[in-house]
Simulated assay, not measured.
Amino acid sequence: MADGVLTAETGEGGSGTRGLTYPFGDAPGFGEAVTVAPGVLWMRLSMPISLNHINVYAIEDGAGWVLIDTGLNIPDSRERWEAMLAGPLGGRPVTRVICTHMHPDHIGLAGWLCERFGVALTMTRLEYVTGRMLLADTGQPAPESGALHYRAAGWDAAQIETYRREFGQFGRAVAPLPAGYVRMREGDRLSIGGHDWRVVIGEGHSPEHACLWRETDGVVLGGDQILPRISSNVSVWPTEPDADPLGDWLDSLERMKGILPHDGLILPSHGEPFQGVQARLDALIRGHRTALKRLEKTLRQPKRAVDVFGALFARPVGDGVRGMATGEAIAHLNYLLQRGRVSRTRDADGVDWWTMIEQGEAA
């Protein structure tokens, strides 16, 4: 799924789990919930892809619940929500729906839940607007600029045809979003159940990803910004081919190191709740730094974006994740390009070739 998480590990970032502890046992099953902090329930929905689940959370809010993320708009997720609403959530009303960001596994059922309970959707502005934009692409033909983008990356004609055929499928996994929303932004404090949750924004994986931090006890709803076992996909897409999301991502991780509590409990969207956020942030940063060094070595000879997968990913890249892998490869290449460490040359066939710049050349 092009709008989700790439489960291929990037450098050491995906596997850098030393220093983490997991205070809870088995993940909740169908219709179940696990209390992970006062007033906070951990629940899980399935997904029909290699990353086979998403964690969702409910926070007590007076007589009802605030829901954090919603899962894909698929029958199985709706059935699981019905079981959870009637079971561990006790038939109590939903007072608000909050989505950390706009990827389908997070907003897929936001519209359905908001309509059902007559409540507002709370998101950051860029996430809401980007989600609405992608929904508007549903069923539309692929733009030629997208085909040229993937041609430049080294895709062949058959792969570009697959891109054309699969373009605009965002809406297949996302119910229509509410026509309006409540904005949250960096530094806001959301009052839920008598406690303030501070909004901490990250960039790179998505435009304006929101984490929520209950400062009174160090509980952090981390979304996809801080995952315990895998590194979130950081990609360049055809809509902004010269973007530097990896720079945004690394800056966000460094900033969070100075903000989040060392002993906090991180509630991620994938994997298990964990402690050891500083170690994990260090590992994610180190993983990308290591990958960049490997990438520079690979670029001693000119390479296309599709030629550098081996320097970035711990396992072969199949057709199902080719778009995300290409996006992540270009993100690393753009990072080096914008810092004067590589050059890019487009040949007569419209293919980009990337080459490391030796220090003497750069000077």
Score class of each variant (00 low, 15 high):
Gly39Asn: 10
Gly323Glu: 10
Trp249Cys: 10
Leu126Ile: 01
Ile226His: 05
Asp61Tyr: 11
Asp251Pro: 01
Thr124Leu: 06
Thr138Trp: 05
Gly19His: 00
Ser235His: 11
Leu336Pro: 09
Glu12Ile: 08
Asp352Leu: 01
Ala175Glu: 10
Thr17Pro: 00
Thr298His: 07
Asp69Trp: 03
Ile330Tyr: 00
Trp353Gly: 03
Val234Asn: 03
Gly276Ile: 08
Ala325Trp: 04
Thr17Val: 12
Pro302Met: 12
Pro141Ile: 10
Gly271Trp: 12
Ser235Pro: 00
Asp251Asn: 13
Gly108Ile: 02
Asp352Arg: 03
Thr35Tyr: 01
Tyr128Gln: 06
Val219Arg: 04
Leu113Cys: 02
Gln359Trp: 12
Glu208Gln: 15
Leu246Phe: 03
Asp224Thr: 12
Pro207Trp: 15
Leu121Ala: 06
Asp349Met: 09
Ala83Leu: 07
Arg280Thr: 12
Ile357Phe: 00
Arg229Asp: 15
Arg304Phe: 11
Arg280Val: 14
Ala86Phe: 06
Thr162Lys: 12
Pro38Val: 08
Arg116Pro: 01
Arg255Gln: 10
Asp105Lys: 06
Leu148Trp: 02
Glu208Met: 06
His106Met: 06
Asp244Cys: 05
Ala158Pro: 00
Thr138Tyr: 08
Trp42Cys: 02
Asp76Met: 04
Trp249Asn: 12
Ile201Arg: 11
His288Gly: 01
Pro93Gly: 02
Arg78Pro: 02
Thr122Lys: 01
Ala33Lys: 06
Lys293Thr: 13
Pro88Cys: 13
Arg315His: 14
Arg198Met: 08
Leu72Asp: 13
Thr124Pro: 04
Ser145Tyr: 05
Met47Phe: 04
Val200Gln: 05
Asn334Met: 05
Gly111Glu: 00
Thr298Leu: 07
Gln359Cys: 02
Arg18Ser: 15
Ala311Met: 11
Thr162Trp: 14
Asn334Phe: 05
Ile285Lys: 07
Gly323Cys: 07
Glu208Trp: 05
